[in-house]
Amino acid sequence: MALSSFAGIWLAAFLTLAIYSFLYKDNPVYRLAESIFVGVSLGYEIGLVFYRTIWPNLVERLLADPGPNWYLAIGGILGIMLYCRYIPKVSFLGRWALAVYIGYFVGVELMQRLHGDVLPQVRDTMLPLSSLSSVTFENLLIIVGVLSVLIYFYFSKPHTGILKPVSRIGVYFIMICFGASFGYTIMARISLLIGRLTFLVEGWVKPMIALISGSG
């Protein structure tokens, strides 16, 4: 085993155990591992964004052929303006850049949500109920669920009279949805545990035992 791999595996194992030590109680080793994680993540992201996006998509193109690529400079300048907020005298420039960004994002997101989210989902709720089959029952369940949950979130009228039992049905649908989400979330968290334990057993303990016993 190469020395770099050996050191890397021990470091990864140490950091994994350091993070899990929080389960016993908060301690300095956990905080050290947490700080390393935050610092490394941030540094990694800055480097990645610069070398994979800013350099090839902006700087390199402007340097190589500024004529047809002049418009890229607008984005670059707006990006730099965002950091003006740290200089009190010109901090207003940061707000201008932010305004452009928000304006663009809201405009794009609005149409995107409408065409990609709202309309397809509304269309998919318009389901046939004409025949007697299990599919019809499923369709009915979806329609009742959507309508009752919508009524539960309708706050312009007090939930009295007919609205009361309907919104109550909506609550049951919401509870089932929360239950499904919670179940899936547990599965996700257990998956992470599996990943770390598998690394500790297969990637750390077993190779080390093999190394010590001379078969690795």
Binding site: P120, D124, S181, T185, A188, S191
Partner: peptide, 23 residues
């Protein structure tokens, strides 16, 4: 798995060909 429950709505609406949820 955390995201999967929400994505079933897109699967049902035909916005996804298929969906693998979690492990």
């Amino acid at each position: 798995a955390v995201s999967a429950p929400k994505y079933y709505a897109y699967l049902k609406a035909g916005q996804m060909v298929g969906l693998m949820g979690g492990m």
